[in-house]
Design a protein around this nucleic acid. Structure first.
Lengths: 129, 129
DNA sequence: TGACGATTTGACGAACTCATCATATCAATA
DNA sequence: TATTGATATGATGAGTTCGTCAAATCGTCA
């Protein structure tokens, strides 16, 4: 695992990191972990209203991607971010999304103002999809 | 698109953002875009040694996720990050990975020092795959 | 207008991820 | 030791992404 990873270029490792983040439930988990030193599985279940095995599958993905660390104390298991920079990453994403959502709202506004068939320029969202 | 997105919780939007980042080629593209104001497709092709249609498929994903914006000038198309915070996000990921890779290296070192069957603790990578 | 360079899109099989249910495992306790 | 609460794992079908090749589109120029 860590051995195989030593041979990978950084962009592959980075992409792999983002794969671990690429699911709504996992984002919710990590947001909880960003707001507290550690969180128990039971707390997550209550907070998120998921079925235990569904949550556990996602926690397993996070463990596999080495984004979280787990610790069993009695019959309870606690999770935490594996790095202090985890919450920073989510915050950086929030900033980027702030821009995206803002420009998206601006475009919606423009679309409401414009005549039916607008500009021919390729740029931005218009080109997408 | 943007209409549908307005109804989504932020964690879903965030996860979708990370989906757009979850491929090595797309990371490489975005790293190039982080290092220059804009980059043409031709430059990317040269830099990355990909086939044109392969690159284009990935650029299409980035456009669909609204992470990049494109502009055609003559027969050349130029791409840029759609937000100044894009590069920051990649930098934040680099910090997180720095921690992960460091703790990974430390574990490799410990593994080399430890006897065959080590601790029973669930924590960290040992619990992962 | 046809040819050509640059880029995008379409299509399809393979691989991977996700959702969900059943089962197994772990720890505590009577 | 069996039971129970807490959590993890296994299995499987559906959905999505990826890799790759073929074809289409766009802009320029003779």
């Amino acid at each position: 695992m860590a051995l195989a990873e030593a041979d990978q270029p950084l962009y592959e490792i980075k992409a792999n990191l983002f794969k671990g983040l690429a699911h709504p439930v996992r984002i919710r988990i990590l947001e909880l972990l960003s707001a507290a030193p550690e969180v128990s599985v039971a707390e997550m279940l209550t907070d998120m209203g998921l079925e235990a095995s569904h949550l556990s599958q996602h926690l397993s993905v996070l463990r596999r991607h080495r984004l979280v660390t787990s610790e069993r104390r009695g019959s309870h298991v606690y999770y935490r971010w594996v790095s202090v920079h985890g919450a920073e990453l989510l915050a950086a994403a929030r900033l980027l999304l702030g821009d995206l959502l803002q420009s998206s709202a601006e475009q919606l506004q423009q679309a409401a103002t414009l005549p039916p068939m607008g500009t021919s320029d390729v740029s931005t969202v218009a080109g997408g999809r």
